[in-house]
């Protein structure tokens, strides 16, 4: 708890968090794990009427939600995230909230897309 508080505060606490889960860790572990789990979740959902698969589906859902929450809570380009959310607000408050909530995962997935595109160009 104490280190978490330390991470968030300044004299009057106006700064953003400085100590975060490493972006590299999110990029190489959380994002691939989330994507794999989403891919597995789709067939397990459709076959959910089978007992053991239903349980697997439930576990996958827990892993996906936990990872999405972990990613959502990190400060990856926080000012840009806020700016996008502010920009979307006049269009729709719900869109603004979605932009805020999903900014991190979209950014990380985009990193993967760019990296894979780069590899694709060389190959």
């Amino acid at each position: 708890m104490s280190s978490k508080i330390k991470a968030k505060i300044d004299c009057c606490g106006s700064n953003f968090e400085t100590e975060q889960v490493s972006i590299l860790g999110l990029l190489t572990l959380s994002v691939p794990l989330t994507l794999i789990c989403i891919l597995l979740w789709i067939p397990t959902f459709t076959l959910g009427f089978i007992g053991p698969i239903k349980s697997l589906n439930s576990n996958l859902k827990t892993i996906i939600n936990a990872n999405l929450l972990l990613i959502e809570k990190q400060d990856i380009l926080p000012r840009l995230r806020c700016n996008f959310s502010v920009w979307a607000n006049p269009i729709s408050p719900s869109l603004s909230r979605t932009v805020y909530d999903k900014f991190n995962i979209i950014s990380l997935v985009l990193c993967w897309v760019l990296a894979l595109s780069g590899v694709g160009l060389f190959v």
């Binding site: 508080i5 968030k8 505060i9 300044d10 004299c11 009057c12 606490g13 106006s14 700064n15 953003f16 968090e17 400060d75 926080p78 000012r79 995230r81 806020c82 700016n83 959310s85 502010v86 607000n89 805020y100």
Partner: peptide, 28 residues
């Protein structure tokens, strides 16, 4: 994150608030 809300309120409607621990670290 209160700091992000503080920033967004300011940018959206020029609403100025304060986020953080308000110079009361020990109490927090």
């Amino acid at each position: 994150n209160p700091a992000e809300i503080c920033l967004m309120l300011s940018k959206m409607e020029k609403i100025m608030t304060r986020s953080g621990v308000h110079c009361g670290h020990s109490w927090f």
